[in-house]
Amino acid sequence: MTTAKRHSNPFVGDGAGHTSPLKAAINYLLVCLLVIALFWVSLAMLGYTFDFSFVSQYRMRIAQGFLLTIEISAASLVASLALGTLVAAGRGSRILPLRYLCDLYVKLIRGTPLIMQIYLFFYIIGTAWGITDRVVAGILILSTFEAAYIAEIIRGSLLSIDETQRDAARAVGLTHAQTVRLVILPQMVARTLPALTGQFASIIKDSSLLSIIAVIEITQTMREISASNFKLFECYFLLGVLYLALTLPVAAIGRHFERRFDYAH
């Protein structure tokens, strides 16, 4: 019954699941080669040749910037998960001011660009409250931003849990605490993990915007290097490769979760 439902979904290609691995690999390689060729031809038309000889010279700075990007992203993930969970709970609260506060927070954060929030929070709130450490400020701002999205993910999955599941838990005699621990939380984890992994990839990419307040993460590092050696194309190309080195594995983890928790949908 469910299988039939899954296959009738026009957005889930029937073909993708049945392609042989070899055929898939060859075709994927072909597509990659095409993309590389497009870049190659474009560069040739500009009469430009890539020169990555500067990389070894700056390898320490690049490594430090890369590491800081990972640190900021990891710290922001933890902080935004905590804040997002609180906000999601707050949006269901019976205390109206708290509920409206959480609602307003999500609306404001999701309705404005991150770059505006970074400037405003850093120069007004950060300065007024004496948060001078740029990395700490960056993590706080990024977490505040991502938490609004995470709150929506958590709230959505909480609402999507069928009322009958709670009824069934009560009917078998589980207490409220047992229901949360044995039924609600496991189902929520199954529903949120794939989406949360996607959000983590967003955090990694969004952390690049912290370069505008001179947090020396990988984007700012590459900006600084390109400003001194004028290797703009090479620097940004390498920057893209470095972000992909983080986001592609994260996406693979997300797909793993999706397969593992398939029953939730």
Partner: peptide, 24 residues
Amino acid sequence: DEATLPAYRAKLGFVFQQGGLFQH
């Protein structure tokens, strides 16, 4: 009363129209 109901329910068996199994 929520404090005593779990023990009362545990002595009964309830079957819903549908969807009463724990999905996970």
